[in-house]
């Protein structure tokens, strides 16, 4: 009986700490928004962060988009040709990329490539007491450190997702048209007539914008909240990847169900 109560109280403690963390993450998000006016006064800080989170992620995004597009082209072709509609391959590739794979895979890669870097950097700043030093000098670490990184992530993500979708479509085209031999005109015209700007492209952008907010704030919070030890920073980095990935996939389902229902 005693161990039963122990298990129960363990579950309770777990849930309370999760809710605590969610609450303080939301508080950090709100504070970032409040202080963003101050962080925009030093716009070059944000630009510097866009370089580190956005520009440096370009290569991994472009290469993986290309392979994702090529695999979609191959797999789609083998399934579609069974139904005699291999010309629809263009629609399949473009819809899959614009609606789902573009925003989601970009966010997952972003969490792994840029999110971990943000967490480790801020965690280490905290461990070496740089953040406390800033507070001592009456410089708000939220305006100076968190804000620019947050806005850089939010700006970079939709850009990266658009690039991902475009490169993916090119990869699909490369496999479908020159290699397999689907008709060039049918590929594009089917794609054009079945993809709606508002419904597919803009909705994909909205998704990647939301993922940008979620991934960056999770990475920032984990770094800001990390215990100031080597072990604490490494654990926080791991948690960033796990939490961001799960959040992105969960949010994707919620957003999609809203967009499809409309």
């Amino acid at each position: 009986m005693d161990s039963f109560f122990k298990i129960l109280s363990n579950i309770g403690a777990q849930i309370t700490s999760r809710i605590w963390r969610l609450g303080s993450a939301s508080r950090l998000f709100l504070l970032t928004l409040i202080y963003s006016g101050e962080s925009f006064k030093r716009i070059h800080l944000t630009i510097r962060e866009i370089y580190f989170t956005g520009v440096m992620s370009l290569i991994i995004i472009v290469v993986s988009a290309f392979f994702v597009g090529m695999v979609l082209g191959l797999q789609g072709y083998y399934t579609l040709q069974k139904y005699g509609s291999s010309e629809s391959i263009g629609v399949l590739v473009a819809l899959a990329l614009l609606r789902e794979l573009g925003p989601v895979v970009t966010a997952l890669l972003f969490a792994g490539r840029a999110g971990t870097a943000i967490t480790a950097e801020i965690g280490l700043m905290k461990a070496t007491e740089q953040l406390s030093a800033m507070e001592m000098m009456a410089v708000s670490p939220i305006a100076r450190i968190i804000g620019p990184r947050f806005w850089a992530g939010v700006i970079s993500m939709p850009i990266l997702a658009s690039i991902f979708s475009l490169v993916g479509v090119m990869g699909g085209y490369l496999v479908a048209v020159p290699i397999i031999g689907v008709d060039h005109g049918a590929f594009w015209s089917q794609m054009n007539s079945n993809i709606d700007f508002r419904f597919d492209i803009i909705n994909g952008l909205i998704k990647s914008f939301v993922f940008g907010i979620a991934c960056t704030i999770i990475a920032l919070y984990e770094g800001y909240d990390a215990p100031p030890t080597a072990e604490g920073v490494s654990r926080a980095t791991t948690r960033t990847v796990v939490t961001s990935s799960l959040t992105v996939l969960g949010l994707d389902f919620i957003l999609t169900s809203f967009m499809i229902a409309h």
């Binding site: 866009i50 370009l58 614009l98 658009s162 594009w188 492209i201």
Partner: peptide, 19 residues
């Protein structure tokens, strides 16, 4: 450059893919 190719990619998607 990064922001410009992002916007260009979006434009290309809108024009070429979304028509």
């Amino acid at each position: 450059f990064f922001v410009a190719i992002g916007i260009a990619a979006l434009m290309a998607l809108a024009m070429k893919v979304g028509n």
